[in-house]
């Protein structure tokens, strides 16, 4: 498989002997331009990869924090074209940093699978994470993504049996997203023991990097996960900083500071 922006960025972190830091924020939150500034701040603070969320009316896999952000973005009128503009502006400002889109399937389906892949690639996007599109339903997307040089990151879960893990990891590229707690998105106080086992079982099926998302919110947790994973994915904690901020500038600064703190966590030996 050819190198992509995503594989290159993850390999660079590995070459430094550390896990990568992957940050998530929804587009259009608190506004389209405010969202772009916040995602740029993720990168300035130290994220190696960013995921831009496409806000959805029915975010069934998300907890209260991301639901609230999606709601604010949608009430602000965010459209798919705004999400693509967000990707384009972030990618232009940080040409070496892979920008992924994380979205529920229906918006892509409705927009047109081939059209979405083409427009995402044209915006400088590196790939997609589609958490409600299991591999069985993903053939059309994978074909379109392949034609446009986009990576498709599939999710695995603690409930995935070993044979299933092999099917999922064989279909994906870039990295494998280990959603390592059973439940919706949201910060959690303890890392728990499901994650390390899931990473080990996943690694047994693939050479792809395995990155873990489980509600990490501080440097200590990031360090704990970084000790056994190739990447640490953080979403709700960043969203919460924006939600709690007095104004958008303060929110952007808080996001940058949290990213910097987490970046020390993934480098801790």
């Amino acid at each position: 498989m050819a190198d992509t922006k995503l594989t290159t960025a993850l390999a660079a972190a590995k070459a430094e002997g550390r896990a990568a830091l992957i940050g998530y924020l929804p587009a259009g939150f608190p506004t389209v331009d405010g969202g772009i500034a916040a995602i740029n701040a993720l990168i300035e603070g130290g994220c190696d990869v960013v995921e831009v969320g496409l806000p959805h009316s029915d975010p069934v896999l998300d907890g209260a924090v991301i639901q609230t952000a999606d709601d604010i973005a949608l009430r602000g009128g965010v459209k798919i074209k705004d999400v693509l503009r967000t990707v384009a502006e972030v990618a232009a400002a940080h040409p070496a940093v892979p920008v992924l889109v994380m979205t529920y399937w229906n918006p892509v389906d409705r927009y047109g699978v081939a059209r979405f892949a083409a427009d995402l690639a044209a915006a400088g996007g590196a790939g997609c994470i589609l958490p409600d599109l299991p591999v069985e339903e993903a053939a059309e997307w994978r074909k379109a993504a392949g034609e446009h040089g986009l990576d498709t990151v599939f999710v695995v879960a603690p409930s995935s049996k070993d044979a299933r893990l092999a099917e999922v990891t064989a279909a994906g590229s870039g990295f494998v997203y280990a959603a390592a707690v059973m439940g919706v998105t949201g910060t959690r106080s303890a890392v728990g023991n499901l994650a390390e086992d899931l990473v080990a079982r996943t690694r047994a099926t693939t050479a792809l990097p395995v990155c873990v998302g489980l509600g990490v919110s501080n440097a200590d947790q990031a360090a704990e996960v970084a000790a056994f994973a190739d990447g640490v994915i953080v979403g709700s904690a960043f969203v919460k900083r924006l939600l709690d901020a007095a104004d958008p500038e303060a929110g952007t600064a808080a996001v940058r500071a949290l990213a910097a703190d987490l970046a020390t966590g993934v480098r801790r030996k």
């Binding site: 999710v155 409930s159 959603a179």
Partner: peptide
């Protein structure tokens, strides 16, 4: 695969596949 013509299927998160 649960399809009635073009409709149906199984669009679910990986966490629910086993269940």
């Amino acid at each position: 695969r649960g399809y009635f013509g073009a409709y149906g299927g199984r669009f679910i998160p990986e966490a629910l596949v086993a269940a």
